[in-house]
Lab assay of single mutants.
Amino acid sequence: TRVETATETAWISLVTALHLVLGLSAVLGLLLLRWQFPAHYRRLRHALW
């Protein structure tokens, strides 16, 4: 049971790290898009909202 718990903890930390990385890359990508294509971003936002 001790090994299982350790594996579970490792998986949880791995998944958390993955989610953090994905979230950060998504935010960075959005910022980059907004910085590179302001007109396109505004049009996209206008279409979405």
Rank of each mutant, 00 (worst) to 15 (best):
P38F: 08
S25W: 02
L33W: 14
S25M: 05
E4H: 14
G23C: 12
H19D: 05
E4A: 14
H19N: 03
G23S: 06
A10I: 07
L20N: 04
A6L: 06
E8H: 02
L30N: 04
Y41L: 06
F37G: 02
T5G: 03
L48N: 07
T5R: 04
L44N: 08
L30V: 09
A39T: 14
A6S: 14
A47T: 02
T16A: 10
L31H: 04
W35E: 15
L24R: 01
A10M: 07
R43E: 08
S13I: 13
I12K: 09
E4R: 12
R43C: 15
V15S: 03
T16F: 04
S13F: 14
R2I: 11
G23L: 14
L24C: 08
L14Q: 05
L30F: 12
T9L: 13
R42G: 11
A39C: 07
T16N: 07
H40W: 05
L14K: 02
L18P: 02
R34L: 02
A26E: 03
R42F: 06
L28N: 05
E4P: 06
L22E: 07
H40K: 10
S25I: 04
G29F: 12
V3R: 04
V3W: 01
W49I: 13
E4Q: 12
V27R: 05
R45T: 09
L28Q: 01
L20M: 10
W11E: 05
W35D: 09
V15C: 01
L33C: 12
A26S: 09
L22H: 08
L48V: 08
Q36K: 10
L30D: 04
Y41T: 14
W35A: 15
V15H: 02
Q36I: 15
P38C: 09
S25H: 05
T5N: 05
V27M: 14
L22Y: 03
E8C: 08
A6H: 02
L31C: 15
V15K: 00
R45Y: 15
A6Y: 00
R2Q: 13
L32N: 03
L44A: 14
W49E: 00
L20W: 07
S13M: 13
R42Q: 14
V27W: 09
E8Y: 02
V3L: 11
A17D: 04
A6D: 04
E8N: 00
L18C: 03
G23H: 00
Q36G: 15
P38R: 14
R2P: 12
L32H: 06
L20V: 12
E4C: 08
W49V: 00
T9Y: 07
L28P: 03
Y41Q: 05
L28V: 02
A17G: 07
L33T: 06
S25Y: 01
H19F: 01
I12L: 10
R45V: 13
R34Q: 01
V21H: 02
T9N: 08
T1I: 13
L48Q: 01
L44E: 00
L22I: 14
V15R: 02
F37V: 10
E4I: 13
R45E: 00
V27S: 09
A10D: 02
R34V: 00
G29C: 14
L44P: 01
A17Y: 03
T16E: 03
L32P: 06
A39R: 14
H19A: 05
R45A: 10
L30W: 03
L24A: 06
T9I: 14
A39M: 14
S13P: 03
H46S: 09
T7G: 08
Y41F: 15
E8R: 02
